[in-house]
Every structure is written in structure tokens, then in C-alpha cells.
Computed example of a mutant assay.
Amino acid sequence: MPEALTTLMPHAFILDVEDKPRLKAHFARMADLTQDIPCFALDFTRDYAELPQVRRAVLENFSGN
């Protein structure tokens, strides 16, 4: 899922960008991760009062309802 990979990459901490083999392996692991597991984006208003509705929506998504 290319969208998931491009979304996750800015959050990857890479200490040494000059270490090309390690950098390549890191990108490969991230790509494998986004291929192997479902990835979702969660976007909601940051309002504590809405958390029960957000929780319900997430649980419904995973339960198939």
C-alpha cells in the first residue's frame, strides 16, 4: 500500500543516512510492513468528548459491523 508507506516514512527515525545498506534494509522492512498488515489512517477532531464515538467507529471497523 504506497499511501501507507509514504505516511509512515516521515515517522521513521534514521540516525545515519550515509549508511546505505542499513537505509535500504530499513526502507525494505517498512515496505514489507505496509504490505503484510492492514494500515489505516485515523483522522478525528481532537475533542475528548468525541472519544467514545471514535472508539466505537474503530471497533466497528475491526469487527466488520
Rank of each mutant, 00 (worst) to 15 (best):
F27Y: 09
D36P: 00
D43M: 03
M1E: 12
L15R: 13
A28S: 09
D32M: 05
R22T: 15
P2M: 11
T45E: 12
P10M: 08
Y48F: 10
P10Q: 06
R46A: 09
M9K: 11
L5C: 01
N65S: 14
T45K: 08
D32K: 10
L5V: 08
T7D: 11
D43T: 11
M30K: 03
F40Q: 01
E50L: 15
T34L: 02
D32C: 03
D47F: 01
M9I: 09
N61R: 13
S63C: 13
V58Q: 01
I37N: 03
D43G: 00
L8R: 03
L8T: 02
P21W: 06
L33S: 03
A25W: 02
M9P: 00
M1Q: 11
V17G: 03
R55P: 00
A49D: 10
R22M: 13
N61V: 02
N61K: 14
N61W: 00
Q53A: 14
D16L: 05
R46Y: 05
E18K: 10
Y48A: 13
A57D: 13
T6I: 08
M9R: 10
E18W: 01
A57P: 00
H11W: 07
S63H: 11
T45F: 00
F44L: 05
C39R: 04
D43V: 12
A12N: 03
T6M: 07
A12K: 04
D16Y: 06
H26C: 11
C39P: 03
T6A: 08
M1P: 11
D16K: 13
F13R: 15
D16G: 06
